Amino acid sequence: MHTSLIVLYTGHLRECADFYIGLGLPLQLEQHGNGPEHYAAELGGTVFEVYPASDRRPPTGSLRLGFRVPAHAVVRGLPTGRHLLTDPDGRMVELEIIKETNINE
């Protein structure tokens, strides 16, 4: 089994997108038909999306996410190693910044 989709709903769309882009996720602005603008990135075989919350789709609550990112991709300037961060909605994000040669280990 493999995770193929993770969707976060947020009341802070741009702030969350900027946060995850700063971690090295290649989020791109998208819109499908008449649906809402949102951000999406393909991470290996997993699609990661950040959507605006609505009455029908309330903000994603407490959640902890983890990402392994090559050092060259991180915009925030953090050193290699593990970092525990909080996104604009208060979700915990564990970021492991590694040398590119170790990305799949």
Score class of each variant (00 low, 15 high):
21 I>R: 15
41 A>T: 01
42 E>R: 04
42 E>S: 09
32 H>W: 11
81 G>H: 05
74 V>C: 12
59 P>V: 09
105 E>W: 14
92 M>T: 14
75 V>P: 01
19 F>T: 11
29 L>K: 14
37 E>D: 12
91 R>G: 05
67 F>N: 10
105 E>L: 14
70 P>C: 03
77 G>L: 08
64 R>H: 08
83 H>G: 06
71 A>T: 08
72 H>N: 12
96 E>N: 14
45 G>S: 10
20 Y>E: 03
45 G>W: 02
42 E>Y: 08
22 G>Q: 06
74 V>G: 02
17 A>K: 01
61 G>H: 06
43 L>R: 02
93 V>S: 07
62 S>I: 10
96 E>W: 13
59 P>L: 04
25 L>F: 05
54 S>L: 12
62 S>T: 14
73 A>W: 14
85 L>C: 08
94 E>H: 10
72 H>T: 08
43 L>A: 01
28 Q>S: 12
78 L>V: 01
55 D>M: 12
59 P>S: 07
41 A>C: 05
95 L>E: 05
86 T>F: 09
28 Q>H: 12
51 Y>K: 08
58 P>K: 06
100 E>A: 15
66 G>F: 03
91 R>Y: 05
91 R>D: 10
102 N>M: 13
56 R>E: 14
46 T>V: 09
89 D>P: 06
60 T>M: 04
25 L>T: 13
79 P>V: 02
68 R>N: 01
58 P>N: 02
82 R>H: 13
21 I>Y: 08
37 E>N: 14
63 L>W: 07
76 R>S: 11
88 P>L: 04
28 Q>F: 12
49 E>L: 08
31 Q>E: 13
64 R>V: 15
49 E>Y: 00
53 A>Y: 13
66 G>W: 10
91 R>C: 06
60 T>Q: 00
94 E>I: 14
98 I>Q: 07
41 A>Y: 02
83 H>A: 06
42 E>N: 08
92 M>Y: 14
27 L>P: 03
81 G>W: 11
19 F>L: 02
43 L>M: 07
80 T>V: 15
76 R>H: 11
67 F>H: 01
25 L>R: 05
39 Y>I: 02
52 P>S: 09
48 F>T: 00
92 M>R: 15
70 P>T: 07
68 R>F: 00
75 V>A: 15
64 R>G: 10
19 F>W: 06
28 Q>T: 11
85 L>Y: 10
44 G>S: 11
47 V>L: 04
61 G>D: 04
40 A>T: 04
81 G>S: 04
87 D>H: 04
35 G>Y: 03
69 V>Y: 00
49 E>N: 03
21 I>F: 10
83 H>I: 08
54 S>M: 12
66 G>Y: 03
31 Q>R: 15
80 T>H: 02
54 S>D: 09
63 L>N: 10
51 Y>D: 08
71 A>I: 11
53 A>G: 04
77 G>S: 06
83 H>P: 09
36 P>I: 02
60 T>I: 03
47 V>W: 03
83 H>Q: 07
98 I>F: 09
68 R>H: 01
34 N>W: 06
28 Q>D: 12
40 A>G: 07
101 T>Q: 12
79 P>G: 05
32 H>V: 15
98 I>G: 13
104 N>K: 12
70 P>Q: 01
73 A>R: 13
48 F>H: 05
33 G>E: 15
32 H>F: 13
87 D>A: 08
50 V>T: 01
77 G>K: 08
29 L>I: 14
88 P>G: 01
104 N>T: 13
104 N>E: 11
55 D>F: 10
102 N>P: 00
20 Y>S: 00
91 R>F: 02
